[in-house]
Design a protein around this nucleic acid. Sequence first.
DNA 1: ACCTGAACACCGTTCAAGT
DNA 2: ACCTGAACACCGTTCAAGT
Lengths: 205, 205
Amino acid sequence: MALCDAEGVAALTMRRLGAALGVEAMSLYHYLPAKEALLDGVVETVFAEIDAAVTDVEPADGWRARIREQFLAARRVMLRHPWMPPLLASRTSVPPNLFFYYDAILRTMVEAGFSYHIAHRALHAFGSMPLGFVQEPFGPAMTSEDDDAFEEHMAALAQSLPHLTAMMESEAHDTDDPTMGWCDSQVEFEFTLDLLLDGLDRLRG
Amino acid sequence: MALCDAEGVAALTMRRLGAALGVEAMSLYHYLPAKEALLDGVVETVFAEIDAAVTDVEPADGWRARIREQFLAARRVMLRHPWMPPLLASRTSVPPNLFFYYDAILRTMVEAGFSYHIAHRALHAFGSMPLGFVQEPFGPAMTSEDDDAFEEHMAALAQSLPHLTAMMESEAHDTDDPTMGWCDSQVEFEFTLDLLLDGLDRLRG
DNA sequence: ACCTGAACACCGTTCAAGT
DNA sequence: ACCTGAACACCGTTCAAGT
C-alpha cells in the first residue's frame, strides 16, 4: 500500500515489493500463490481501513444521517488511495471484508422499516458509494495533463456542443475558475447521495 | 476490439495485435506513439458505438422516457463489451467522443425545464449510467470462480452476518436459485435509474 | 513511407539448489 | 522453513537498417 500510495498501482511489482522488503522477488512466492493474490490483499486491506473508519462514526439520528456519515467516512479513506477504484474494477474475486460493512448497512435500513427486498435494491443502487466514490466517465486526474490541447479542442467544438458550452458558462459565473476544474467532487458526491437517500426514503414500507 | 471481445483486454498486446494484422509489433509504432494511445482508441471506438446506438433511439415522450431509453440502449452496447468498465476506470485522458452524448443529455434536460446548474449536478449523479453500467464492489464475473469455497465461507460467516443472511433467505423465496446469482442486474439497473430520474424530476424548476 | 531484426529494460513465474 | 540464482516466456519500446 505504501508503494501504491507513493507511485500508483503500476509501481507495485513483485521485484519492487521484494526490494522494499529487502528480499528477492522470488521469495514472495513462499507467501503468495501469484500476484493476483497480492492485489486481492491490497484491496482487502483498504476495505479493512474503511471498515474501521465506518465503525468509528458516532451513531447519528435516523438511518439517513447514519448511512450518510458512514459513506462520507469511507470517502475520506478513499481519497487517500486514489488508485483504488481502477484496481477494484479489475478484481475478479469477491472481497470478504466488505460483507461486514454491507451487513451493517442492511441492519440500519431494516431497523428503519425497510423490507429486505428494497434494502437489497438499495445496496445495488448505492453502487460504489458505500466505498466513498462514484465511477464517472471523466475521472479526477483527467484535466491535468494536456490542458492547452484540451482547451483548444473544446473551443473548436463549442459550436457543436451548445449546451455543454452554455452550462460551462453558466456555472462559471459562480466561481473564479473558468475551466472544468469548477466541479466540486465533494459537493457532487453528497448531492448524488442525498438524491438516492431521498428516493429510498419514499419507498420505505 | 475483436481481440478484447474474444479474450479480454489483457490479450490486447502490441505483439498480438501486430500478429492479428499480419505485421510485426514494431510496425504499429508508425501509427501510434505508445500503447496508451491504442487503449484510448479502443475506448473511443466503444463510445462511438454507444453514440450511434443512442442516436438511433426513437424520441420518446418526455425527458425521463427519452433519457431512460438512451441509457438502456447504451447498456445493450456495454453488455457486448464487458471488459470496458475496468479499462475505462484506468484511463487518464478524457474521451472526446463522449462530449456529444453529454450535450444531448443536457439538451433534453434543459428543454424539459431544468436549470444548467441542476443538469450539471445530474450529469455527475448519473455517473457511469449513461454508459449503461454501474460500478459495484461485487462485479459480474465474481461468483463464477471458486463457488464451493465461497459457499462454505458464507456459511461459516452466516452468524456474523445476520442481515445479509436474512436478506438472501428472504429474496430466495421468490426464485429457484438459492445463490447470489438471483440478482438481476437488468432490474437493478432500471431500479437505480428510475430512483435517480424520480429524484431529479422533483428538482425541476 | 512503411516495415523489420536485434536489442534493451522490465515483467510474472518455475525450479532446482542453497542454508 | 525460508531464501536465492539462473532461466523462461512474455511485455513495451528504441533504433538503426532495410525496401
